[in-house]
Write a protein that binds this DNA or RNA. Sequence first.
DNA 1: ATAGAGACCTGTGTGC
DNA 2: TGCACACAGGTCTCTA
Length: 292
Amino acid sequence: MPELPEVETVRCGLAPTLEGALIEKVELRRADLRFPFPRRFAANLKGQRIEALRRRAKYLLADIGTDWTLIMHLGMSGSFRLEDGEPVAAGARHYEPGKAPAHDHVVLHLRDGPRVVYNDPRRFGFMLLVRRAALDQHPLLATLGVEPTGNALSGAALAPLLARRTAPLKAVLIDQRVIAGLGNIYACEALWRAGLSPRRRAGSLVRADGRPTERLERLVETVRAVIADAIEAGGSSLRDYVQADGTLGLFQHRFAVYDREGEPCLRRSCDGVVRRIVQSGRSSFYCPGCQR
DNA sequence: ATAGAGACCTGTGTGC
DNA sequence: TGCACACAGGTCTCTA
């Protein structure tokens, strides 16, 4: 669910509270999320200081003490909220007054700070404690592609990854080994901005000599722009996603194609209608009129 | 190697 | 009102 802009927004919301905080206790309300929690998970966190809260692709990385990093992933429906005093902050989903909130799976108790509650109805998220020295070699992180936020993303960087690939462009864009953190929504939006069809063969954006085409350079720019715009808007709130303080993202109001099947294309001078197709099991939204 | 399907899990919206 | 079904921001594993 949450893609890079949502995870980055969560990171910004949590960092002021978490960075420098001392973990007094970790409460696990169940034995597993996507994976079982390791034996000593809570014990290893107890008494440790959170040194920094970083992000790589859709992963949150909390540096714990000198030796460990806590890898956290929100899956499709994970969210954090900060609680002071009585349980439940405004904006918590799946909450009925008088009842314990559903799907609160992990609670971090900080010394002199609010509780940090992880909620995840579908439980596709997870938390994993790994040795920081080996973090980059961890299987989850080792094969990640380039971040779309810095200066690393370029036509030249992508060309070798797209060359000769026959898979649809959309499928390759959301492959985390290519662009780290790009997901279904923002891939659709970037393709619309670039005027490129999600069905086009990925390899068609690379010249025979291996250099990027103008179309690929254009796509790189729209990917960077849509990610930057979404971060600025605090991400997109559809069902489960909220920021750490319970407020909603705003980018869903700016979708050009995502979830707009049957509605008119927003491009001036295009009278097309947004279509939904299924590519490798995921919905792709695009305008057949102006995306080629 | 690469592309696609299925699996994991719960909640919500739609149509009958 | 209830029920069945489709679908949802992700990613791992298996099969051709």
